[in-house]
Design a binder for these strands. Structure first.
Length: 431
RNA sequence: UCCGGAAUAGCUCAACGGUAGAGCAGGUGGCUGUUAACCACUUGGUUGGGGGUUCGAAUCCCUCUUCCGGAGCCA
């Protein structure tokens, strides 16, 4: 008898097969018994009929609890009521383990309880769907970058300095070498990579010890940083747009069931696969003020501003050419206005907010050094970074995507904590 | 860090100064097509900790703890 995955069940219609998995739900009605079996690749209803399975096995099956692990043998049939679906007529059943009382019930639970049981919560169908979309977003990003000649270049997680001096770092003692820090971004290391490989990206966990407490923040999250030589500001935004639209198309194509489980508005997602909006920070501020925001030309966009900006836009919007005071030291000044930098944020629609930050980088040694001195950065620690501007400097640009934020927007999930297997937040590190 | 809210059965909640209760989960039984199945019966409580007011506190007051929502910072 052939052991198959539920994902492959359509290929085995009218065949006797073996499934191995867990009991998602069980109901019985006299001599009939329905088991919703899940095996990680999908769910299928298995139907046992007492006269066919035998009294002893049927009685055992009746006492299966939620999440018990079982091996089911049976014949694949079309579902009598649900078009295009299948069910399994059970001919044999063996129990691996009867699960103890499963803490996560069929009715609703609170956030605290679910987060404390995250190791079990991930089995629930919505969580299953989100994690599968996360996987697809991850590999679609890598696939797009590979097609565009980007080489994976893993930047270190243990670093001697802050990449962007402003935000808070997790600190640890590194043997006898003094303090080390968990990386907030691999970007500065990526800039070294392009001088060897032309186009590079990294993808890994980064850490922010900010005491942020919102549905958009994690202290440990996965970031993809891409960096490319000879790509300038406008091409940089173009590349980001193509990447995001590619990811949307792949998710719509390969994760339709998961989007349905999550009740994601697929039409809204489809509508985002169209040319993105572009707006300078100056124009964005003017627009927001006309809508009643109190933002000024020296401010970053607040949470309400991000919602206001995109509320009538089906597509994400780039906001670029920011005042240099509110952006990082490494961003290149705007040749048309020395008070601005060639940085861009990509703001996702549907009230979601920022998903990408990118910029053309300062490639002139003297201007970069001056900027670092102005920010009181420890120049000696960044000798290696400044060296890049001494030995064959070139115009170059890059951007960083927060994986969980992208997954959150694409899957239409309310809180970022559901988009990573084990979220790390200011007041939570278990499990 | 700041502002707001919450904590009662395993879970989700009710009771708002006078005998702690429901639904779900668990248990037992019933039902040949169920879809968070249904029906009947049933187990289950130091009302987050400490202190106070009161004849009497889950309920009012103080305090601590934990969590949730939002802001700022950012991806």
């Amino acid at each position: 008898m052939k052991y198959i995955l539920i994902a492959e069940i359509a290929e085995h219609l009218e065949e006797e097969i073996v499934l191995k998995g867990w009991v998602r739900n069980i109901r019985h009605s006299g001599k009939l018994l329905f088991i919703i079996l899940r095996d990680g690749t999908g769910d299928v209803q298995c139907v046992a009929f007492q006269p066919e399975l035998g009294e002893e096995k049927f009685d055992q099956a009746k006492h299966l609890s939620l999440e018990s692990s079982v091996i089911i043998t049976g014949k694949v049939k079309p579902h009598p009521r649900l078009e295009g679906q299948f069910e399994v007529a059970v001919s044999d059943l063996s129990i691996i383990q009867i699960a103890e009382d499963y803490p996560i019930g069929k009715k609703e639970h609170g956030a605290d309880f679910l987060l404390s049981h995250r190791h079990l919560w991930i089995r629930s169908s919505k969580q299953w769907a989100i994690l599968r979309i996360r996987h697809t977003v991850y590999y679609a990003i890598c696939d797009f970058l590979h097609q565009n000649h980007f080489i994976r270049f893993d930047s270190p997680i243990l670093t001697p300095n802050a990449c962007e001096g402003t935000t808070t770092l997790f600190e640890l003692q590194y043997f006898d070498e003094g303090k080390a820090y968990l990386s907030q971004s691999g970007q500065l290391y990526l800039e070294t990579g392009i001088m060897s490989l032309g186009r590079v990206y990294d993808f890994g966990p980064v850490f922010r010890a900010e005491r942020s407490k919102t549905r958009k923040h994690l202290t440990e999250f996965w970031m993809m940083d891409a960096e490319a030589a000879f790509i300038e500001h406008d091409e940089n935004m173009q590349l980001q747009e193509e990447l995001i639209r590619y990811v949307i198309r792949i998710v719509l194509k390969e994760r339709d069931l998961e989007l349905t489980i999550l009740e994601r508005d697929k039409e809204a997602l489809k509508a985002a696969d169209a040319p993105f909006g572009r707006m300078s920070h100056y124009d964005a501020v003017e627009y927001l003020r006309s809508k009643g925001s109190e933002i000024t030309h020296q401010n970053d966009l607040g949470a309400i501003d991000e919602v206001l900006l995109t509320e009538n836009s089906p597509v994400p919007i780039f906001v670029d050419r920011w005042p240099k005071e509110i952006k990082a030291f490494y961003m290149k000044r705007d040749p048309e206005n020395p008070d601005l930098v060639l940085g861009s944020d990509l703001i996702a629609p549907e009230g979601f907010g920022e998903i990408i930050g990118g910029s053309q980088r300062e490639d002139d040694y003297d201007l970069l050094l001056q900027r670092m001195i102005n920010e009181n950065m420890p120049i000696e620690d960044y000798r290696w970074f400044l060296d890049l501007r001494k030995y064959g400097t070139v115009p170059h640009s890059g951007f960083g995507i927060g994986l969980e934020r992208l997954v959150c927007w694409i899957s239409g999930v309310h809180h970022i904590r559901e988009t990573i297997p084990f979220p790390r937040m200011i007041y939570r590190i278990y499990p």
